[in-house]
Design a protein around this nucleic acid. Sequence first.
DNA 1: AACACTTAATATTTCGAAATTCTTGACGCA
DNA 2: TGCGTCAAGAATTTCGAAATATTAAGTGTT
Lengths: 232, 232
Amino acid sequence: MTSTIATRGEEVYVRMRGDIVAGEFRPGTKLRFAMLTDRYESSASVIREGLARLVEQGLVLSEPQQGYRVAPVSIRDLKDLTLARCAVETQALKLSLEHGNLAWESSLVAAIHALERTPIGSKPSSGDPWPIVHRRFHEILLEGCPSQRLINTALRLRDSAALYRRWSLPADDYGNRDLNGEHRAIADAAISRDTESACHLLEAHLNLTARLLVERGLQEGFLEESEPVESG
Amino acid sequence: MTSTIATRGEEVYVRMRGDIVAGEFRPGTKLRFAMLTDRYESSASVIREGLARLVEQGLVLSEPQQGYRVAPVSIRDLKDLTLARCAVETQALKLSLEHGNLAWESSLVAAIHALERTPIGSKPSSGDPWPIVHRRFHEILLEGCPSQRLINTALRLRDSAALYRRWSLPADDYGNRDLNGEHRAIADAAISRDTESACHLLEAHLNLTARLLVERGLQEGFLEESEPVESG
DNA sequence: AACACTTAATATTTCGAAATTCTTGACGCA
DNA sequence: TGCGTCAAGAATTTCGAAATATTAAGTGTT
């Protein structure tokens, strides 16, 4: 099941990516080679290769001759990202509903079933299964789409958004929100092939998350309108 | 005007990318380090860094322990790509028409003016200005979109499509087609903020190109339904 | 001839150190 | 005190070679 990783570079890349998305490094922090070579037990060349890929995904920022840092978060960028996600995910969802076969429909039923029965973790922790089940649900939602590139684009944007979820939302705010209800509504619309409704519900779902993140982030004073340049 | 490039790695990346998009290397061909280090006068580490970024963009394929190769082309992938481009570009265009201001509108007028007056090159050559003006037109079309990420996504997909244009369409086929007319129609709809028409016209434009590429590619026997695994 | 095994050659991958650039802080001077 | 200069230190970037894996060739056996 667990695929063996062929090269050290690939392994380092996967681990770095996982650490960033999981929130091991705070957005905006400098990623020093001394630390990285120590942590991932590889030479600078290999680390650098992984960082290059992460830069391309927008998870890491490159500052020539000054190294790399975790992509900073900002309200401006969150709005930008949310707009892009709404655009891409609704289109992928539309195609998914139009082309998804019975097998896809069934896997979606399974996914919403599992999601509704997985308790929503109260605090961000690496052992919490909910984010994984949640991500899987949204992924399957799009999986009927015949364009793999479009699906990949959506998933990549989703991973960028994961940074915001991890860093600005104390998870007990989930309580104010009927997340299961939202997901159920989207799934039901999808299964009954109601493209119009499904897309609107998904868009509302994404926008609501973004709005809550902004409100919560502002309270914490963590998200800034302008991107931070310095950070200890 | 020409921005100085900060690191050798960045320069190598830009050159490799340009060479691939311009069609210096045939799709599917192996990119050997001996050749690359010689051509770009850099060590393997630097080359590898650039390749990692290109892999992330889908322009290059990585085969662990067996090196890298230029992304192969196939009809299946062209359809996948075209579907993704229609989805993303129409959404970006829609947002662009909704948010683009007068400055954007003016630059679009300038772009279509320049495009109509640039002769369409008859054969693929690096000195031909038309592809650049053409790309710029489509780029500006989207530039009113408030989400930079969405624009970037569209441009990245467009670059992947450039490989197909370069490798399967002998350019005299452009003659059968009123390209200027298509572009003019899109621009006019955009300027008069007719979102519906503009999106449909753009989608038709992209689909027609894809259809012609398939027809032409099949004639040449170059594009294959399945991706080639071997190539001398 | 066909196949398995071993060996040589070739290519990729990784490392550790050298080269380069940036950052820091002290010093001299207005 | 404030400011520019300059050296010392620290970090990034690049290289060239060592290590590892793959491919090709050769040898012997059936």
